[in-house]
Design a protein around this nucleic acid. Sequence first.
DNA 1: ACTTGACCTACGTTG
DNA 2: TAGGTCAAGT
Length: 736
Amino acid sequence: MNLSQLNSQQVKAVTQTSRPVLIFAGAGSGKTRVLTHKIAYLINENLFSPQNIMAVTFTNKAANEMKVRVQAMLPQYNIHSMNVGTFHSIAARILRIEAKILGFTSGFTIYDTDDTQKLIKEIINEYQINIQGINPKTARYYISKMKNAFKRPGDTESEMSSNKDKQMAEIYRIYQEKLVSSNAMDFDDLLLHPIDLFVNFPEKLAHYQNLFEYLLVDEYQDTNSPQFEFIRMLASHHQNITVVGDDDQSIYGWRGADVQNILNFEQIFTNVEIVKLEQNYRSSKNILEAAHSVVATNINRAKKKLWTDNDTGEKISVYEALDERDEAKYMVSCIQKFVGRVKNNFNDYAILYRTNAQSRAFEESFIRSGIPYTIVGGTKFYARKEIKDILAYLRLVINEKDEVSFDRIINFPSRGIGETTLKKIKYRASQLGSSPWDALNGIASLDIRAQQKKSLFQFKGLIENLQSMRETVSPYKIAKSLVQYLDLENYYVIQNSPEDVDRWNNIEELLLGIKTFCDENPDSRLSDYLENVSLQTDIDNWNSSANAVTLMTVHSAKGLEFPVVFITGLEEGLFPLWSGDERNMEEEKRLFYVGMTRAKLKVVLTFAQFRRRYGGDSEIPMLKSEFIKLIPEHLIISDTTKRKQWDNSAIAYRDRIQEIRAHMHKDPGSSLSKQNGSYKEDGNYQEGQIVQHKMWGRGKIHDVEGVGEKAKLTIVFTGNVTKKLIAGYANLKIIE
DNA sequence: ACTTGACCTACGTTG
DNA sequence: TAGGTCAAGT
């Protein structure tokens, strides 16, 4: 085994296999390399077989990469049987096998946040819970919090005093019953059910302790209590475990992650070997120094400092923008300037922000400039209505008890099953003590009209038909025949609105995605596809090699690296988003530290004087983030020259816009282009015009909303690509 | 049963 | 802005 690429501490972390190992791995200190080498070492030294190694990563993408790397190091072994994945995917794999003993079937559905919220909403409506401070969202948070603290329904009822507390506990109880009767689990359950399994069936615990002989856990600082317990139960017996973490990068406290798990590690496991990786191979000296200067002000922190052999590098750029649009413009100009000078490819650049909502201004700016970009996370593809509808059919095919999916599609596309009919079905189900699906066995005896009966028979027949295919036919073929049967193309395209055309395009994209999955996993069944979809992380869907600038939250950027990183919206109340209590503030600082340390060569920090929220017109004055002030001046280069030049004109510009808006309010007929000479003469577009766009080529304007610079144009481009563009940004040429 | 439009509220990060 | 809700209209 060749360990010559590793430094002495890394070698120690890899070769210590007889004691539990706790690796403190600073940002960019090569922990991925250590983990892959260690796995390869364990196998190559004949200490453990691939099928007896379990490795927990933070994304599925990282899991796959790890497998590929280990396989490349050990071509003579088949490492396919190794158990690598996120906590959730590893737990789900166990639960598929052990479902029966826990009262589920192996086809149980995994409910995402959206499904969970729908279910809670339904409970609140059904039980007419109408109390101040209780809504689906707060109830969802409450339930998740309870679960992460191992509190089961009923556990807390004795402590409950207020009416609200009692109602919350009641919602939790019904919610959990509904999950069980729907043969479904939420994300938290995926971790709790394996623990229940291990507690209630010691022979199962023994089985998995024997199966997972060696455990490795990445991003250990972000494990929450159930995750820690899962690990503890599996590994405390044999103590074959290596965990890697960095307390400075703990950024998931809000979802129950506890840095204390690092301290607990030394209590649960005995004779722990602690290895510290303090050499950074990623960033320039300036970047490391600046990042450290912020996180070092945290009080609850083990004192330490990374060092690097890398160059001093460029200073940190700081830009004070007028507002979020100016910030976005600056970003574009920087990238245009940097391409060729700092780094050549667009995928060398990452734009990070604290909240997803900030991506919008950047997106508009990038479209206008023609710079290719990709957004990670945000409005998720699989969360779109048209996608969820199809997935709901497929889920019902696998798990007919799934009530959330049943509710979603029983009348989609509309088949005349309204609220009244659905209530009758549900009433029948409650009488039988069964799921709504089972209640459909007695359609004939339901007190509903003939038309509704016919619809329900057809619906039932469709699902049963698909069920007959689920074990033998590929997921792609099943999905395709479903879409064809429902005639969704016609359903959406016939309406011809750009939104509906978009929806149909998304469905085609979904089908393509299912096809790709089937090509990559030839023997997979429908249930495999659904599991893959439910447990995908944002990063899993990100193509890092595409030549495009990446836009994402700082949270999503954890574990990644880029030559050039922009951290944006550095304003009090945005980043840091919270400044109230010390604990939150320290986590915000760590988050900022994570963002800074993603960069290899260059960091650009930006903040705005004013920012619009909720997409409205009102601009809120903002204050420069304290984080920037914590960075020593000698590490910073301010982009103020440019600012001063157009500060006055920019403010005059903003005032003028506000004046015009006030005027427009009184006189809706007037447009900005008429009143303000600085706007483009050809800024007025009409329906039916043929226009030319830099990226999408020739297109026809289908709709114009608003006037002048701010008008939103719906344009159908060649190849039936529909886009909504802002007139002032679109840079269109009118052809005819 | 389903569609339309007025009105309200929300922008905190994820599996 | 945009998504959700509710009431009125078809």
